[in-house]
Nucleic acid binder design. Structure first.
Lengths: 176, 176
DNA sequence: CCGCTCATGTAACTGGTTACATGATTTA
DNA sequence: TAAATCATGTAACCAGTTACATGAGCGG
């Protein structure tokens, strides 16, 4: 029933507890993937929902007159997180996510070879800079000894590299 | 302003024109990525919106008493499609999409090594079967001489292969 | 003529988004 | 003391989903 964001927020609180909603927001906002914005309108109501479900528990921070709330995952919340992580995973077609680049190439018939090359060049530049960022983040995670954050960034790196390799195939067909 | 789905629908009509809304639905529903469901509630209102914008034009099918509508892309619609395809592409962080597997591994601390292995095994099986499907579809596209559909499926294949390669890294850390 | 597919549509809902608003705390 | 950041929240909106509903056309 719960959305991926809901589970991810529970996971983030679990990793950083005790933490504020604001911290959770920042983590999503600064994430390398922009899939979730970490907007106030999503995170604050979501954390309240999680508290209603009894999977997180908030408490006012000591000596904080603005009523900052510190969230912790409850025993029940830890159980929910574990249940979500266990197989079965979402079905395979959900593992193949939508790729805006792939979608565009599907309609390449509509533009000229010259314009197709321009798309390839633009995509390559964007992917290269994002790859560099992912590498830095991966290195930082490794230094901090955070194995699973490191692995998550490795996933990003391999995924971007796959896109770049695919671009070479696209380029080869455009060249003809 | 327009969503990716809106542009993709315009592209699909352009590729298959003249075609019915029902055909468009089927194409999304049968797509290898389940990102868009092709539900009636999305496609029918969307096509009406596109017609309001003047980018597609519908006409009743000859000798069809149930009022089946055949859609075509207008000159203006072709222009919109081309403008969307041209650079600049969406920014790099949008090119790195959310991967439910990556998200789960980020929170692997919450489960035991044994359970982590179970996730890896499940993921590998699902990705392998999906890879086989993508390969079949790619082959079919190649046979039909549809270069850009073939390329789109190649993107899926490379992406799944990258995920499988990454799973080996995940497995290596779980093993310890 | 029965069931499947073709074909079109609506209503209620959901899970987010953007934009706005307020005020406390920290730092330059 | 001004500006940036921390912190919390709401309201309006939007895109897309599920579920429901109707009916025509067609193959066995």
């Amino acid at each position: 029933m719960a959305s991926e964001l809901e589970q991810a927020v529970l996971g983030v609180v679990w990793l950083h507890q005790p933490c504020t909603a604001y911290q959770v927001r920042k983590i999503f906002a600064q994430s390398i993937s922009s899939h979730w914005s970490g907007s106030a309108g999503s995170i604050y109501p979501l954390l309240r929902r999680l508290e209603d479900q009894g999977v997180v528990k908030s408490a006012a921070r000591e000596g904080d007159s603005r009523g900052t709330l510190l969230y912790k995952v409850t025993r029940r919340g830890a159980g929910k997180l574990k249940a979500w992580l266990k197989p079965p995973l979402p079905s395979a077609e959900h593992l193949l996510t939508m790729d805006p680049l792939r979608v565009r190439v599907r309609f390449f018939d509509a533009i000229s070879p010259k314009q197709r090359m321009a798309v390839v060049v633009d995509a390559r530049a964007k992917l290269a800079s994002h790859l560099a960022l992912a590498r830095e983040l991966a290195k930082a995670a490794e230094r901090q000894g955070d194995t699973h954050l490191h692995l998550a960034h490795r996933s990003g790196i391999l995924s971007i590299r796959a896109q770049i390799a695919w671009l070479r195939e696209v380029e080869a067909t455009v060249d003809q």
